[in-house]
């Protein structure tokens, strides 16, 4: 395993346990205040957990949500900082990232836009060749086009360098086709922990005449009733169903929203 959390509790986070294999891409999803940042802080080693423990194989790089960086540093100083403060430093990798996203080299960090600062912090994190990369809301300050590009580049880095990536977000649309693992947090508890493809195969939405009980076996995630219709989102594993019921797979976004709605 590359990352292990065992019954971690800290502030909002309560009793969270999971294990992530090396080379995986994990999305930590949850509403505001559900404990995403706290969990990442604990994993990065910046906060000691109240109980439980975390373990990370290898070196960690962490980019917090507010993208902190010394305002007086020039972009070149950040690279120099990374080179001097790390035992392993891949200047080319960091430099390429800055070139790719056209970050102006002559400016100080304080004069950069939010998105450009994000790229500088990402370059510092990637340049240190981490085994585990933790990103807290990495895309929050980027425009829609840059988001896609950054996600694509990050995935390339993951597969090229066998890095484990964990990122948090509350924009569910960002994780479709990106994350192969989903950690869904609600109110500090781990609601869903699983492979995204498997989760999508398991969850089926059944729609049909109004009934008070689920038409198929399996745990009901969410049931909705209108005057004449009922719809059940069931973790049935793909059970077939006869007329007049219809069944369809849900999107990742629907799945996440349904789980969050049930928890609320």
């Amino acid at each position: 395993m590359s990352v292990v959390a065992a019954e971690v509790s800290k502030w909002a986070v309560r009793n969270v346990s999971f294990e992530l294999p090396p080379g995986s891409v994990t999305a930590v999803v949850g509403a505001n205040g559900s404990g995403k940042s706290t969990l990442l802080n604990v994993l990065a080693g910046h906060l000691p957990p109240e109980s439980g423990h975390t373990a990370v194989a290898g070196r960690v790089a962490y980019v917090p949500q507010h993208k902190p960086m010394y305002k007086g540093f020039k972009v070149a100083d950040v690279l120099e900082f990374g080179r001097r403060m790390n035992t392993v430093w891949d200047n080319e990798r960091a430099d390429e990232w800055l070139t790719r996203f056209k970050v102006p080299r002559r400016l100080q960090i304080g004069d950069l836009s939010g998105g450009q600062r994000t790229h500088v912090t990402l370059a510092l994190a990637l340049g240190s060749r981490p085994d585990v990369l933790l990103l807290d809301e990495p895309l929050s300050e980027l425009d829609p086009l840059a988001r896609r590009k950054v996600v694509g580049e990050l995935l390339t880095e993951v597969s090229d360098k066998s890095m484990t990536l964990i990122f948090s977000t509350h924009v569910v649309a960002e994780i479709g086709g990106v994350a192969d693992r989903l950690l869904l947090l609600a109110d500090g508890r781990l609601l869903v922990d699983g492979d995204t493809d498997e989760l999508l195969e398991q969850h089926v939405l059944y729609t049909g005449p109004r009934v008070s009980e689920s038409p198929v076996e399996g745990p009901v995630v969410l049931a909705k009733h209108s005057k004449s219709q009922s719809s059940y989102l069931v973790r049935s594993g793909g059970t077939q169903i006869a007329e007049p019921w219809t069944a369809r797979y849900v999107t990742l976004e629907e799945l996440v929203v349904a789980h969050l709605e049930r928890a609320a």
């Binding site: 395993m1 590359s2 292990v4 990065a44 080693g45 910046h46 423990h53 975390t54 373990a55 990370v56 194989a57 290898g58 070196r59 960690v60 962490y62």
Partner: peptide, 8 residues
């Protein structure tokens, strides 16, 4: 220390 704070 946030790097390699607890190795597996």
């Amino acid at each position: 220390p946030s790097r390699s704070h607890r190795r597996i």
